[in-house]
Every structure is written in structure tokens, then in C-alpha cells.
Amino acid sequence: MEPILARHRATQDSLLPILHDVQAEFGHISEDAIRTIAEALNLTRAEVYGVVSFYHDFRSQPDPRPAIKICRAEACQARGIEALMPAIEAAAGARVRVETTYCLGLCSVGPAAMIGKDVHARLTEGSVGDLVNSL
């Protein structure tokens, strides 16, 4: 935690950048981390917890499984993502975490998915199955 806190100003507006760094480093934001951040920024634990729980990106529980983000917004629906979901869920099983996202900005070439920072478009049952299996 110390190196992360040292990288940022000790003011409330640093809270999101700090939380992003903590999540990237530890995979989730634990109660201990919340306590440490609250002390460093002179906030209450409730204030920090309130921010953690507000944003979809932040997790309060660890989940070490590999993850794939699937866009299920309107444009990807129009291009057939819902028909692919059974195959995606079957390939993922309990081994891979399938996360829903609303829009990756690939609305002209969907259905689209993101793994880490890698983006994938024009998904088919075959290609998305291969992606999930490669995780």
C-alpha cells in the first residue's frame, strides 16, 4: 500500500486513482486497504467504502479467475450478442468470470469483448469460444 499512496497527493481527489492502483495491484480492495486509504486521505472508512461500492470497476472480494468483459449494450445486441451468450457461458463454466459491460465503443463491429486491454470484435460462437478457452 505505501508505494501506491506515495505516488498520489494525500487529498480526496486522488481517491479514484488510488483505488485503481490498489485494484490493479491486489485484484480487489480489501477492508484493510479501505482503512489505510481513509487514514492517509483523512476520510472516514464509510466515505471510502461508499466510493468503492459505487463504481462497477471496484471489487471488494478477491476473484482470481481470468475474466472476459462482454458488451451487452444495444449496438452489440443488434449485432447478435444475446444469441452468443449460452455458448460463452458454457465455455466459461465456473473457471472464467464473464463480466457484462455496457459499451466498448466498438459498436460498428460488434459483438465485442475485452480481455484485459485487448479488444476483440465480430465475435462468432466459434471465435468467442476460442477466446474463453484461451484464458
Binding site: C71, A73, E74, A75, C76, Y102, C103, G105, L106, C107, S108
Partner: peptide
């Protein structure tokens, strides 16, 4: 924060 589906 371009979150609208259909925009890029």
C-alpha cells in the same frame, strides 16, 4: 466518458 452504446 463516452458511455452511450452506438457512439465511438
Amino acid at each position: 466518458d463516452e458511455g452511450d452504446s452506438g457512439t465511438f
